[in-house]
Design a protein around this nucleic acid. Structure first.
Lengths: 224, 224, 224, 224
DNA sequence: CATGAATGAGATTTCATTCAT
DNA sequence: CATGAATGAAATCTCATTCAT
C-alpha cells in the first residue's frame, strides 16, 4: 500500500531513539515510514493532546499498520519521546545556525531573525508538543530541552557584542523564549498567517531587546 | 478516552445550567460538593490534560461517589465546559472590577495591577484549562472566552484616558493578554513564586504599555 | 444477568487478595461473582496453561463482563496469583484438619486418608494450577506453598507417634507429596475415577509409609 | 496466542515429515539449524509453556531468522509437534536399549538403571514438553507417546523373568512411569542434582519393584 | 438521592505468519 | 533460499457511563 519510498525524511535521521526502545529501521522504506509516523504523531498529539491521541489514529493517518507502528515505537510514550527529542534537536540545530551568522546583527534585526525562525518552526507541526502533558520522565526531558533552547538563545545574545554576560543573557533568554513562543501560538490561527499580529510581535521583541541589551541603543543607531 | 455506551439517558432531561448539562444543586451540601468537584476537576485536568484525566480520579480527589459526580455533570465534557465557563466568568468579573478602578492609573501602575491580577488567578488552578484539547464546541467556547477577556482588557485600556480608540485597544489587548499569560506559566514552577522573573514580566508589561499607549509618556511623568 | 445470588463460595472467603491488587467485593453479588471467576479461571488455566488462557475466555465462561473481571483482578497475573493463594490456603487448612485426627492412625490408614484427601482436592479444579508457568514472583509463591504443604505433611507424620523427628519427616514429605500428586494426575482421566489405579496408589503410599516410618511395622500390627 | 491471518499458504505444500508439516533439511547447515531450533524451542516451551512461548524468542535464541524458522516449521504447532515426536522417539529408542540388556538384572539394579535413564533424559530439556497444553491433535500424540513408553517399560519388566504377564506388567508400568517422572521434576532444582533425593527415589522405585514383581524376592536374593 | 458495582466500546499492545527484498 | 519488515487478528486492559441497591 502506497509507495512513498524515497523522498521525505531529511530530518528523521536526527531522531535519537536509543534508550527509548524505538527501533531503527534498516531499509529505506522503513525510514520514510518512520518519518510519516512522526509527522502524523505530531499532528494528532497537537490536535488531541497526549491523552486524547490514539495510536490507532496515528497509524491510520500515517497509513501504517498498527503493528508496524509498534515495531518502531513500542509505546505511545516512546513515540511522544521521539517527537520531543526531534523537536529539541531541531531547535538546537537551528539556533546554532542562527548564532553562526548573528554577530553583526542589530537588536531589531535579530528580533526579525528570531521571529522568522519561529515562523519556520511553526510550519513544523511538532511545536505543539511542548504543551503535552506526560509522564515524569518526559517532563524531565522537556525541562532539558527548554534549558538547551534557553542556552542557545543566550549564546546568540552574547555574540551580539553588547557587553552582556552569559548569566545576564540567560536571564533575558527566559523572557525572550516566552515572547517567541507567541509566534506559533498567535500567528497560526487556522492555516494563514496573521501578518499584522506578526508585525506586533516583531515590534515587541525588538523593543524588548533594544531595551534590555546594554549598548543596544548605540548598536541600533549604528545599524540604522 | 472515547464515548461509550451513550444512549441519551432519561435523567439528562432534568439538566439545566445553559446547554452545558450541569445540574444546579439546590441544597447547601450540593453546592459545596459541586465546588469540590470543580476544584478537583481543575486540578486533574491541569495535571493530566483533558484526555488523560479520568472521571474516577476526579471523583476520588473530590471525595465524591462517581454516581454523584455524574448527577451534577452528566458528561466529562460537561465538567470541562463548566470549568471553562467558571474561568470565563471569573476573568470577566475581575477585569470589570479592575476597569472600575483603573481610570487614574499610570501605565506602569496598570502593569502592576494586571500582573498581580494574573498572580491571583494562577492561584486558581483552572487556568491550566485554556490549554486543553477538547471538542469542536468547546473550542468555540474558548474562543468566546478569549474574546471576552480581550474586550475586557481593551476596555481597561480605553478608560486610561490615553486617547486610544477601542479598535486600537483591542489590537493591543491581544499581545497584552499573551504577555500576561506568562505570569502563571513562568511564575509558578512548583509551588513558590519566582520573584525575579515576576519583576522581569512587570517591567516588560510596563515597557509595552508605555511604548504603545499614545500620551503614555506624559501620563507616566504625571504619575511619577 | 443470571442471579446466582446467595449459595456457592464458602471457600472464596479465604482468598487473600491484599497485596495482589485485587479488589474485595462489598456486596453479596460481588462475592459470588468472584467465586465464579475463580472457578472459570481454574478451569481455563488448567486446560490451556497460563499463557494459553485468555482473560476474555475466563470472562465469558464465568458470564462476567470483561470490565468486571478486571475490577476484581486487575491483571491476568493477579488472577493466577489469587488462584494459587486459594489453593495454598485450601491445602494448608485441610492438612491441618487431617493432622487433628491423625494421632491414632496406622500408616496404611493414613495412606488411605491422604489419598482420599487428594481425591477430594482434585474435585477442586484448582489443582491444575501447580503446573502453570508464570512470572518470577509467582514461582516464589509456589515454592512457598509447596513448603507449607510439605511442612503440613511432615507434621502429620510426627503426630503418628512413630518416633520420627521433624527433620526426617520433612525428608519423607517431599517424596510423599510427590506420590500424592499422582492422585489427581493419574486418577482423573476424563471425568470418572480409575478405581484400580487408585487402589495401586493406595498400596504404594501405604508401602512407602510402612517401610519408611520407624516402628511402623509394630504400629501396623497393632492396628490390624 | 491464537491463529492469525491463516490462509493455507502455497509453501505449505512442500512440507513433508509425517503430517507434522516440518521440512526435512537436505544440507548439513540445515540440519544443525533445525537442531538449534529444536533445542531453543524445547528451552522456551519449558520455560514459558506453549502459550507463553513466542516464535520470535525461539528464533532469537537459536540465532535463526524468523523467516528461516518458518521454513523448517511452518507453524508453532508444527514445532511443538516435532519436539514431541523427537521426545517420543528418543524415549522409545532408549527404552529398547535398556530392554536389550535388562534380562539378568535384579529389581533393584533395574531401579537404578531406570533412574539413571531418567537423569540422562532430564539433561534433555525436552522433557518439560509433556506438561504443556496444546491442541486436541497434540493431546492424542501425547497419549500415543505415553502409551509407547508404557509398553516399553512393560516389555522391560517381562524380560526380567519374574513370571509376570504382559498385562500385569502394563499395569505396573503406569505407576512406575509416574514414579520415574519424579526424577527430572524433583532432582533438577536449578542446575545441580539433589543427590539425597535421588537416593530416596532409587529406594522407592526399588521397593516398588521388589514388592510388586512375583519371584522378586528370590531374584533379589539371587542377585545379592 | 447517594452509592459504587457492573458494563462494554474502544485503546494499547503482542505475535503468528507472510512476503518483498 | 535467507532475511527481517510488515501485517492485522486477537489479547490485555481502561474508563465513561449506567443502574440496581
Amino acid at each position: 500500500m502506497a509507495s512513498q519510498k524515497s523522498s521525505a525524511s531529511t530530518t528523521a535521521t536526527v531522531v535519537t531513539r536509543a534508550a527509548t526502545g524505538a527501533v531503527a529501521p534498516k531499509r529505506e522504506r522503513g525510514r520514510s515510514r518512520v518519518a510519516a509516523i512522526l509527522e502524523a504523531g505530531a499532528e494528532v498529539f497537537a490536535e488531541k493532546g497526549y491523552g486524547g491521541a490514539t495510536m490507532t489514529e496515528i497509524a491510520a493517518r500515517s497509513k501504517t499498520a498498527i503493528g508496524s507502528l509498534y515495531r518502531f515505537f513500542p509505546t505511545k510514550e516512546a513515540l511522544a519521546d521521539a517527537l520531543l527529542t526531534r523537536y529539541g534537536d531541531l531547535m538546537t540545530e537551528r539556533l546554532a545556525a542562527i548564532e553562526a551568522r548573528a554577530s553583526g546583527l542589530s537588536p531589531s534585526q535579530l528580533a526579525d531573525v528570531l521571529v522568522d525562525f519561529m515562523l519556520d518552526m511553526s510550519a513544523d507541526r511538532a511545536i505543539a508538543l511542548p504543551l503535552i502533558e506526560v509522564t515524569q520522565e518526559a517532563e524531565e526531558k522537556r525541562a532539558h530541552i527548554r534549558g538547551a533552547i534557553r542556552r542557545g538563545l543566550a549564546s546568540i545574545l552574547t555574540v551580539l557584542d553588547t557587553g552582556i554576560t552569559q548569566a545576564e543573557a540567560e536571564g533575558l533568554a527566559v523572557m525572550l523564549l516566552y515572547l517567541l513562543k507567541a509566534v506559533p501560538q498567535l500567528a497560526c490561527n487556522g492555516s494563514e498567517v496573521d501578518e499584522p499580529l506578526i508585525a506586533r510581535i516583531r515590534a515587541l521583541v525588538s523593543l524588548y531587546l533594544v531595551n534590555e541589551l546594554p549598548h543596544a541603543q548605540r548598536l541600533a543607531n549604528d545599524a540604522s
